[in-house]
Design a protein around this nucleic acid. Structure first.
Lengths: 206, 206
DNA sequence: CCCCTTCTTGACCAGTTGGTAAAATCGAGG
DNA sequence: CCTCGATTTTACCAACTGGTCAAGAAGGGG
C-alpha cells in the first residue's frame, strides 16, 4: 500500500468532486451511491471499489472540506489592524459563500444532522482554532482597539451572516427578487459596516 | 366535507407534532412514514388515511410553521424606537431558537433542499412582509434614527445570527464546550451590542 | 509477448420504504 | 341494539438502495 497509482488518484478525485455535488444537493440520505457513480462517470460497483461505503465517501468529502473551509479564519492576523482584519475576514467568507456554495451547504447539512461525522474533529481541531483566535480578539480589546465583546459569539456571527448567503440561497433570492444580482457585493458592504460601526447613526458618517 | 370530527382533529394534530420532530431530526429523505406513525402512536396505513403521502405531511407541517415563524418580524413596530425595536426583535428570535429549535432546523433543511415546497410562498408572502418592514427601516433612516444600511441585508443578518444557534447547535456546543450553558443569553447580549453599536471602541461605552 | 496485479462490469441480493387493498372494528344517530 | 359511515389493522407489493461476487478487461514490468 505504498503510493496510489495514477488511476487511483484520478478516480478518487473524480468521485470526491461528484460526491460533493450530489451530497450537497440531496443531503446524505437523499444522495444515492448510483447518482454519485453516474456523476463520476463510472459504475456503482467500480465506485465501491475505491470507497467501501457511502458513508466512507461522505466522511472523506467532509474531511477534505473542513481544512479549506477554515483557512480564512486562520488568516486572521494578530499583528494586523482589527478593523481591517475583520473586514478582510468578512470579505473572504462572502467570497467563499459565492464561489463554493456546495461546500457550505454540505457543512450545514452535516450540522443539521447533529454532526455525527464531524463531532469529534469539531470538539478538537475547530475548538482549538477558535479558542486561539478568540484570544487574538481579546488582546485587541485589551489594547483598546476593539469594543469588549464575547469573542466566540463574534466569530459565530461572522460565520452565520456570511454562510447564510449560500445555505439559504432560495430564501435570499425569493426576498430580493430581481434586485438580487449584486447580493454578495451588497452583503459584504453591509456586513462590514454593521460589524465595524453598528446601526446607530453618528455625526461624521458617510 | 363539512367539519372534521373530534378524532380527525386529534389525530391530525398528533401526526403533525410527531412529523415535526421526525422531519427536523432526520430531514425529509431521512424521515420514514413508519417513524412518524410510531411517534404519533398509530399504524402506518392509519397515518396515510389522514394524509395521503409523506410529502403531504411535510408540506402541511411547513405551512403551519411559516406563519408562527414570522410573527416576531410582524411585531416590528414602525412607531417604536428603532434601537428598542431591533433589540426586542433580536431577543424574540433568540428565544425562538432556544425554545423551538426543531422548527428552525426544519425550515433550514427545506432551504438547503432548494425550497421545493416553500418556494412560491416565499416569493409571495415572505417577500411582501420583508419589503414592508424594509420600508419601515428606511423610514427610520430617513428620520435620522438609524444609519443608512441596506434593509433587506439587515433582516437577513438578524435571521442568520439568531437561527444559527438552533441550526448549528452541534458546532456551537463543540466550540463553547462547558462554557456553553448560557449561550442563548450571551448571544442575545452580544448581538444587541453588535447590531446597535458595532465593534469600534468608543468613549462613553460601558 | 506474457503474466500478474489492478481495475471494471453485469448479475444479483436482502433490507427498507412509500403506498395500496380489503377486511375488520368502532361509534354515533335512529 | 342496529345500521352505516368513519376509522383502524393485517397482509401485501413494487420500487429503490446499499452492497457483494465472480468473471472479464486492461495495463505495466519483465
Amino acid at each position: 500500500m505504498a503510493k496510489p497509482s495514477r488511476i487511483q488518484s484520478e478516480n478518487r478525485e473524480k468521485i470526491l468532486a461528484a460526491a460533493l455535488e450530489v451530497f450537497s444537493r440531496d443531503g446524505f440520505r437523499g444522495a444515492t451511491v448510483d447518482a454519485i457513480a453516474q456523476a463520476s462517470g463510472m459504475s456503482k460497483p467500480n465506485l465501491l471499489y475505491y470507497y467501501r461505503s457511502k458513508e466512507a465517501i461522505y466522511a472523506e468529502v467532509l474531511a477534505g472540506l473542513l481544512d479549506a473551509w477554515l483557512d480564512p479564519l486562520r488568516a486572521l492576523d494578530p499583528e494586523g489592524d482589527p478593523a481591517r482584519e475583520i473586514g478582510a475576514y468578512i470579505d473572504r467568507k462572502i467570497e467563499m459563500a459565492r464561489d463554493y456554495p456546495a461546500e457550505s451547504r454540505l457543512f450545514a447539512g452535516e450540522m443539521l444532522r447533529g454532526a455525527p461525522i464531524l463531532d469529534t474533529v469539531l470538539r478538537r481541531d475547530l475548538k482549538a482554532l477558535v479558542d486561539e483566535k478568540a484570544e487574538v480578539i481579546r488582546a485587541w480589546t485589551r489594547a483598546g482597539q476593539l469594543a469588549p465583546v464575547h469573542p466566540h459569539h463574534l466569530i459565530f456571527a461572522i460565520w452565520a451572516t456570511t454562510q447564510h448567503y449560500a445555505d439559504f440561497d432560495p430564501q435570499v433570492r425569493a426576498v430580493l427578487g430581481d434586485e438580487g444580482e449584486g447580493r454578495f457585493h451588497d452583503a459584504a458592504d453591509f456586513l462590514k459596516r454593521l460589524f465595524l460601526l453598528g446601526l446607530c447613526p453618528r455625526d461624521g458618517a458617510g
